[in-house]
Measured scan of single mutants.
Amino acid sequence: MSIQHFRVALIPFFAAFCLPVFAHPETLVKVKDAEDQLGARVGYIELDLNSGKILESFRPEERFPMMSTFKVLLCGAVLSRVDAGQEQLGRRIHYSQNDLVEYSPVTEKHLTDGMTVRELCSAAITMSDNTAANLLLTTIGGPKELTAFLHNMGDHVTRLDRWEPELNEAIPNDERDTTMPAAMATTLRKLLTGELLTLASRQQLIDWMEADKVAGPLLRSALPAGWFIADKSGAGERGSRGIIAALGPDGKPSRIVVIYTTGSQATMDERNRQIAEIGASLIKHW
Rank of each mutant, 00 (worst) to 15 (best):
A132H: 03
E145H: 13
R255P: 00
R63W: 05
F70L: 06
D250I: 11
G85K: 12
G216V: 06
P181F: 00
E62T: 09
A170C: 14
M268R: 07
R202L: 06
E87M: 11
D207T: 13
R220L: 06
G85Q: 12
G39N: 12
P25K: 15
N173V: 09
E119L: 02
A40N: 05
R271P: 06
A215H: 04
K144Y: 10
D33A: 13
G76V: 05
S80Y: 14
L205E: 01
M268V: 10
L191Y: 07
G39R: 13
S68Q: 03
L49V: 14
K144D: 11
A40D: 04
P181D: 00
K144F: 11
S264K: 06
L247N: 04
G76I: 05
A170N: 09
E119M: 06
R41P: 12
E195W: 08
A132P: 03
A225D: 12
G251K: 15
E62G: 07
D207S: 15
A246K: 01
Q88S: 15
Y95P: 05
C121G: 05
A124R: 01
Q265P: 14
R81F: 08
S201L: 07
A185R: 03
E102N: 13
T27M: 05
P172A: 12
K252G: 12
T187C: 08
L160C: 10
L191W: 05
E270C: 10
L136Q: 03
I275H: 03
V106H: 08
P143R: 05
L192D: 02
L282C: 09
A215T: 07
Y260W: 00
D129T: 02
L218F: 03
C75W: 02
E237M: 14
P172V: 12
T262N: 10
R255V: 06
A132F: 01
R176C: 08
R59S: 06
L146H: 01
Q204E: 12
R202F: 05
W163K: 09
R91Y: 05
L160Y: 02
T267F: 08
G236H: 03
T107I: 06
V101I: 12
A230C: 09
Q274K: 12
A34F: 08
G216M: 09
T131K: 03
W227T: 01
E237I: 09
G248F: 02
T69L: 03
G226I: 04
F70I: 07
R238N: 15
N98R: 14
P65L: 03
L167Y: 00
S57M: 11
L135R: 04
D48Q: 07
R63C: 06
T27H: 06
G194V: 07
M209S: 00
P181E: 03
G43F: 00
S96T: 13
D269R: 11
L219W: 04
D113I: 10
G76K: 00
G279N: 04
T186M: 15
L47W: 00
S201G: 12
E35G: 04
T178V: 04
G226F: 06
P249R: 12
T131P: 03
D36C: 12
G216C: 07
S240Q: 06
E169V: 10
L120K: 01
K53I: 13
I278Q: 01
G90D: 14
V106P: 03
G239K: 02
I206K: 10
I171D: 15
N173L: 12
L111N: 06
I283N: 03
L79H: 02
A230T: 00
G248N: 02
G236Q: 01
T187H: 05
V29G: 15
D231T: 05
E164G: 01
G154P: 05
A123H: 03
T262P: 03
V106I: 15
A84L: 12
I278N: 03
R271Q: 11
E164Q: 02
P217N: 10
A170E: 07
P172C: 11
D250Y: 12
I283E: 01
T262E: 09
N130S: 05
G234M: 03
A276Y: 11
L146P: 00
M66F: 09
L100A: 05
D36T: 15
V29N: 14
A182N: 12
M67Y: 01
S122M: 11
E46R: 05
V157H: 12
W286K: 00
Y95A: 04
G43C: 03
L199H: 14
V157R: 11
Q97T: 13
I275G: 01
V157D: 10
S80R: 15
